[in-house]
Design a protein around this nucleic acid. Structure first.
Lengths: 180, 180
DNA sequence: GTCTATAAAAAGATAGAC
DNA sequence: GTCTATCTTTTTATAGAC
């Protein structure tokens, strides 16, 4: 077992950050390399092309998503509550990666779209049996999607209405009451 | 009162379509002009620059949103139900415009972000008083946002799980029951 | 592995004919 | 009003030095 290639990870981190903070158009090879502290040539040694860079980010998402589901299933709070809470944790590695990959998906990257869909199915499977019926399951997933959607807006210049603190607890309690 | 400038509207329609179907990066001045059946020079006669084109689309969103709220308030189905149903109607002019503007917002266009926020506030205001409390109001808005979020994925190559038909009616009934 | 330099294509914008 | 032609800058990618 060797140490992970640090330059590669730094480039993926920078790519993610620019995608989320400034959008897909700003996430050029040049800007990503500069932000990661390497040259364009250096970046293209690790990732042969722009699409290879994108594909590597999608792979990272799949890995993080599997870990997230495992953690929710170990949670003592209850799967529904843990899932909603996890959806609002916009700082986590999984969340920024989802946002970054959704930027790729929205620019026609089909692998990114398919991956986001798989992540949602992972969640759906892990929640099934924890809600009173299928409709309730869909409500939980939609509230979770809604939290993400607003996180997307929030990460732009204008802040969006975040649900947090006591309000988040109330929201979770209401969703749990309505769906389990 | 003169007739609306048809070429201008055709260009905005084409710009919207490309933004939604292929993403912001594909929505170049050149591609938009071609899709609208005019030349690049012709497009830039009506819109002095790319940002002017974007600004015009944001203006169109504001107009459509005001009309949507007025319609929901006239609805006999109840404001919550009418709003959720309206959120799933991904074919409407308002919906594609929201998706198009959200592509702009996600690429750093602050006016687009602010406009999406205003639209959400318009909805929030029009629903206030129609739910049992503030938490319930947030759930309605989040479910609605979640439906949009999935519509975004759905409009890419890979289809996402749409809630429709009888399932949509069940979802609406459950949300109404949980929030009003 | 990482760099600089450069090629090749695509982007936004302008000029001027019609 | 709408077009073609052209300019400038940016973007992806390659070549080759270190």
């Amino acid at each position: 077992m060797s140490r992970p290639p640090l330059a590669r990870e730094a480039v993926l981190d920078a790519f993610t950050r620019i995608l989320v903070d400034e959008g897909e158009r700003a996430a050029t090879v040049d800007a990503t390399a500069r932000s990661a502290g390497v040259s364009k040539g250096g970046l293209l040694y690790h990732f042969n092309s722009k699409s290879a860079l994108e594909a590597a980010l999608v792979e990272r998402l799949e890995k993080l998503a599997r870990e997230d589901v495992e953690e929710i299933e170990r949670s003592t709070e209850g799967a529904v509550a843990a899932h909603i809470r996890s959806s609002q944790n916009t700082g986590s590695a999984l969340d920024v990666t989802i946002l970054a990959v959704s930027r790729l998906a929205q620019n026609g990257n089909d692998a990114a779209t398919a991956s986001l869909r798989r992540v949602r199915e992972l969640w759906e499977e892990s929640l099934r049996g924890h809600t009173r019926d299928e409709t309730a399951l869909q409500i939980v997933l939609l509230v979770s999607d809604g939290l993400y959607f607003n996180a997307v807006l929030d990460l732009n210049a204008v802040p969006s209405p975040r649900v947090e603190g006591a309000d988040l607890d109330k929201l979770i309690a209401a969703v749990v009451a309505a769906t389990t």
